[in-house]
Design a protein around this nucleic acid. Structure first.
Lengths: 324, 324
DNA sequence: CTTCGCCATGACAACGTTGTCTGAGTCGAA
DNA sequence: TTCGACTCAGACAACGTTGTCATGGCGAAG
């Protein structure tokens, strides 16, 4: 800026005025300054501007589990879209389901003075985030609720989804329904199991914990679960898109396959044979709601923490209607 | 920091020393400072630090087309991973294939003083980026080469991939091979078409421009292309994962289907009936190479612009071996 | 008891901006 | 002719850090 000022033969303040399109600069002077800016390729240093102005940095942080997972990338894109119309940018970080990494990312983003945070929790302890919230950085949790603290969050109707799936399978005549879920420490996995249990109860189907396997997350372990505890199940509910895919792969060669309902829709589910019945939801809406909640806070909303639940829907395609 | 200093009864410089774990602070003093930091929830302002230090911001910018597309999100995740071990963070922005937006994002990121940029070009004109490169911000282009300027880039072997596909289909006895590609202005689309043409020539299959449709990108338009220009094709090559999926959907109900080879592998391709033969590549490697190139520049590598080509491979699964 | 050197600490400037205030010049009206 | 109002421009401080240099105290060597 000093260089621009020197080249244009004005003071840096005048350059600042031109850069910010402030009024009160003679047209000819402004012209000279703009020329100098062009000539030198000057670009305002946003960090310095933020420092001086004391306003936010125009950035929001998104801490998620794995950007390569379509669920999270779609969610992030939705956040980015909301941020864009607000003129904000998005800093992302993948925690890999590691609470320590989650924490590091959150604190790092706070040190970078993000205006707000959207966090998909990896851990259950978020007391550490209270300092930051008190310091004025709003935080919205997505997909899983925060632990220890009372804060905004946006969740899916996990239990409702699997309950619907269980009832649906019961209606199809199934009495031995298995459940393949993620590790039970993960909130969504626990909730989906709970919903499954409730759905069984509602449909008068016996809940058999022997038909439940929580945690397998490779082709091999899923296959082993299907051959082991879930051997006698005539139908299976899979707890997320990853597990559904593993299950499909495990079942691929087999002649007799259990009926299947998967949590999370996925591309091409309708083109498989049989087409896969799923519990679907609007991932985009999940991210959008979270972002909107966050921006409401940034706009000064100080109402008590909000909880948004995004509905899930059973999308019948065929795989849930096949009986062994 | 001033507050911490006051509370601990020291000068801000001492706080700075403690925060930076500099030597030469009495243990007892450091203890007092740390207590004060804890008590006040102080977090160093990284913007101010960067401003003062004059070193980079520890951030790299990634400008891509659409984060919700698994191809780009995987690529970004790979970049993030490389950045992580270097202690850097990632700022992302989706251009939506709009050159203006691409440019805005690049310039905005530069104003935020990112240490480097990874750009998946939306446009063909990148002269505007020279200023920034001269100002010391290295830029690596990915997936498509830059226009107008000479810079580092990492591409897929697009032409090689479709040439392999064409030869493969020719070996299967096909003489009327169609090509369904993206808009020809897009570099990858043009290259893949070129490769197709070359592959046909190599295999002595007549290249028929009547069997080529470039640009359709909805279920409907793809379906129309299959019913129109590509009506007589006994085999079809699809130019990217989006188009492959549209094609699969369009063909779903039909009794007689052309053989199919798709560019880009995709999840569940092996579980469809028939399993889909694809031209596959290592998306992660693409992102990783780009990031490594960028960090080499940041480490002071001043060799002439590098060009990396990531190989593609034909993965035979079945759909290319089906003859109408 | 000096003097030297080291250790712990602080004062101050500067990074690149911008808000506030002040000043120089111009113009029109009394 | 004087004065106020107005326009344009610059000086200066401050945002939160950290690099540089200075200072005071204290132990050891002379």
């Amino acid at each position: 800026m000093t260089d621009v000022a020197r080249l244009a033969g004005v003071s840096i303040k005048t350059v600042s005025r031109v850069v910010n399109s402030e009024s009160g600069v003679h047209a000819a002077t402004a012209e000279r300054v703009l020329d100098a800016i062009d000539q030198l390729g000057f670009r305002r240093n946003v960090s310095a501007q933020n420092l001086r102005r004391g306003t936010g940095t125009g950035t929001i942080g998104v801490v998620l589990e794995d950007l390569a997972n379509p669920f999270y990338s779609t969610l992030t894109r939705a956040v980015e879209e909301v941020a864009r119309v607000q003129g904000k940018h998005v800093l992302t970080g993948s925690s890999d389901e590691d609470p320590t990494r989650e924490r590091e990312l959150v604190l790092e983003f706070c040190a970078r003075r993000v205006d707000g945070l959207i966090v998909i929790p990896a851990g259950h302890q978020h007391g550490y985030i209270e300092h930051e919230r008190n310091a004025g950085t709003p935080v919205v949790f997505v997909d899983r609720p925060p632990g220890e603290i009372d804060a905004d969050f946006v969740l899916l109707d996990n239990a409702g989804g699997t309950a619907k799936a269980a009832r649906h399978l019961a209606e199809q005549g199934h009495r031995k329904i298995g459940f393949l879920g993620d590790a039970p420490e993960i909130h969504t996995a626990a909730e989906r199991l709970r919903g499954f249990r409730e759905g069984c109860a509602q449909a008068d189907v016996p809940f058999d914990s022997g038909l439940v396997a929580m945690g397998p997350h490779t082709d091999e372990s899923v296959s082993a679960a299907l051959d082991g505890p879930l051997r006698d199940a005539t139908a299976v509910i899979t707890g997320n898109n990853r597990i559904t895919v593993h299950t499909l792969r495990a079942l691929a060669g087999r002649t007799s396959r259990p009926a299947l309902v998967g949590f999370d829709d996925f591309e091409l589910a309708d083109l498989l044979d049989p087409p896969i019945t799923v519990i679907t939801h609007d991932t985009w809406a999940l991210g959008k709601s979270a972002a909107e909640l966050l921006f409401a806070r940034l706009d000064g909303d100080t109402s008590p923490p909000g909880r948004v639940v995004v509905p899930t829907r059973l999308l019948v395609r065929g795989s849930g209607e096949v009986v062994r």
